[in-house]
Design a protein around this nucleic acid. Structure first.
Lengths: 355, 355
DNA sequence: TGAATCTGCTGAATCGTTTGAGCAATTGGA
DNA sequence: TCCAATTGCTCAAACGATTCAGCAGATTCA
């Protein structure tokens, strides 16, 4: 079925219609058809109507390769995930992000390409190739480590790029994120001020991620601003549930009389919950617990985990809009923008009685 | 070419390199470069090496539009989600599917385009346009309602399409799915045979989804094959947590002495769990519960919900491989293939004591 | 020595679309 | 009546990669 005939002009069933097919139906040149569809003022009203009718009839959609080639720029954007697929790509955060991005892209009739790192490390990264091949007109980069050299290479690569998160060492980069420092401080402050807890441990993410750094910073800020002295402890995890267990164990060792744990994400908070439960400690009566993210996990556990809600979908939507602004040049170059976050109190901090 | 002055040959920083840039560096024609990169036998070894060196030097990646235009066929595949974005796209199922698809696509150096329905209903669907515009060489269609006319239109549209799920009314369609009937029967049989329960209710999905139909069918099969008589009841939900609550309430009304509930997915099982708990009924002691899917939700609840594990990632991977087979013509046209599923017993059916 | 073959490349055409230049017909103004 | 301006289209040239026919030069064989 791959062998195509010589192409009798505008064979009705054979493959998608082209400008030429419409042209031969209407009886004008392909150029006229192109201009008619673009609503060019120099094309007559009748011709335009005839062209549009024929286009609808034949189900014409412009060949994206032809268009991209001629007008230098595709109608796609890429969402790239620099980290290995297993680690981040499978995370609910990414899914919500993607929903936001596709919603915005759909509204502008733009296709979304997703790209992760290939397994091999010496090869040029997959997303690198996508941008160089001009398959996408720009890219949204999600959750990169701060020392990822690819990110700064892409930012400097001349192609429109929007980063998700905060990148203090890339001052020229356009980014959309949230105030993780304030969020973490709010979570910690809630434990200190509203629940009167004084001996608090933090389970952080890997410290080469800005997000982990910022949440740790917010934690320390809240401790520091407390009028009454608080004791703090740190255990460094990797955002995974198992690390949460291990870090909770570590905190219990290192800080006798631990009253509360603030974990840098909900997965680790859940891990901590399991560890505490397995040691016979009650949450929140013996140890209070707060997480971060609110992507479903924290709502389901018993007790439900109090957390900071990250509006990932909104993040994705704004990143996409910002990217369109860069691509079409319709935007003042805002360097960084934050979406609002919110403390969600549930049972694990002691706000509502665990049922 | 009188216009050769316009283009200072291979300006190093200006935009991605083209074949011409390499050609002018090496001192051969663009054709030779193309053939060298394709490892054509009629190109000399030295030239090939020089070309490859220059290509690496300039960071050359073939312009995807140019290549697609000439060789008729892009190097992307599309993943389309016919349902509204809110409903299905945000589901963990989709995320796992996507991980599998991208993993397979990455391995073959193929880009993945994702597409959802636009809001408007009268417009040609977004994925329709993607295929017609040849932006993607083929498509994987995820979770469509059985009466979705777009699906059969795409299947008959002449472009390679792989469906995910079972489509008994589209006998020619290539699809990858799982045996939902067997899975549901296994879940129900577990309640009957292993736990000795006899009065069982089913919370199904919307019955215009084949998945919902099949799981209901499996439920009834297991009831029917039971040597001892069982009582059954049905409540129809929409795969959402709220519907799970409502359906559980409905089942408790309609079937006095209800001993067990088999829900067609984990979200609804979780809703049922909440409803049972709010009525003071213990799970599994008073009412046993089994769900379906195992995308994280069921593992986190207390008690953890027994369920059927759906290998969505594997589903995505196989769908992608099947699609490549269709596109490149390297495959016998297997019509339908199943991935294996597995019963995962946890606490909600009574297999392990709830901690 | 001359013809056939092989080797290594060039030139031109092509994919489908867009766009500026330009041409023929019509209309307007003086 | 004649020169302009306007209207409505056509032509040709791109965009970048691929591919096939063909052309020199070198090599082989008779």
């Amino acid at each position: 079925m791959a062998a195509s005939e010589q192409r009798p002009p505008a064979a009705p069933g054979r493959g998608p219609a082209t400008l030429r097919d419409i042209a031969s139906v209407v009886g004008v040149s392909p150029s006229a058809v192109s201009m008619a569809l673009a609503d060019h003022p120099r094309i007559g009203r009748e011709t335009k109507e005839a062209v549009r009718a024929a286009a609808r009839e034949l189900g014409y959609v412009a060949n994206s390769a032809g268009r991209a080639l001629r007008s230098g720029g595709s109608t796609s954007i890429a969402v790239v995930v620099p980290n290995t697929a297993q680690h981040v790509f499978g995370h609910p955060y990414f899914m919500h992000l993607l929903v936001g991005v596709t919603a915005a892209a759909n509204a502008h009739d733009v296709a979304v390409l997703i790209s992760t790192n290939p397994a091999s490390d010496h090869d040029p990264a997959a997303y690198d190739r996508i941008l160089r091949s001009r398959a996408a007109a720009g890219a949204i980069i999600a959750s990169a480590a701060i020392n990822d050299p690819n990110v700064s290479r892409m930012v400097d690569g001349g192609l429109p790029v929007v980063l998700i998160g905060r990148y203090p060492h890339l001052p020229h980069a356009v980014s959309v994120g949230m105030d993780d420092i304030a969020g973490a401080a709010a979570a910690t402050r809630h434990l200190i001020v509203d629940h009167g807890l004084r001996r608090i441990g933090h389970i952080s993410g890997p410290l080469e991620h800005q997000t982990a750094l910022d949440r740790y910073q917010g934690f320390r800020d809240a401790i520091a601003e407390s009028p009454e002295p608080c004791a703090q402890a740190l255990a460094v995890g990797d955002f995974g549930e198992e690390a949460g267990r291990a870090c909770a164990a570590q905190l219990l060792e290192s800080m006798p009389g631990l009253e509360a744990i603030f974990a840098a994400n909900d997965e680790m908070a859940y891990g901590a919950l399991l560890e505490l439960r397995s040691r016979g400690l009650r949450v929140p009566e013996d140890v209070a617990l707060v997480g971060y993210d609110d992507f479903g996990v924290s709502r389901l556990t018993t007790p439900a985990i109090s957390t900071i809600r990250v509006p990932a979908e909104e993040l994705g939507r704004q990143a996409a809009e910002r990217l369109f602004g860069l691509i079409w040049g319709t935007d003042e170059p805002v360097t960084h923008e934050n979406v609002p976050i919110e403390l969600v109190t549930r049972e694990s901090c002691g706000c509502r009685p665990a049922s």
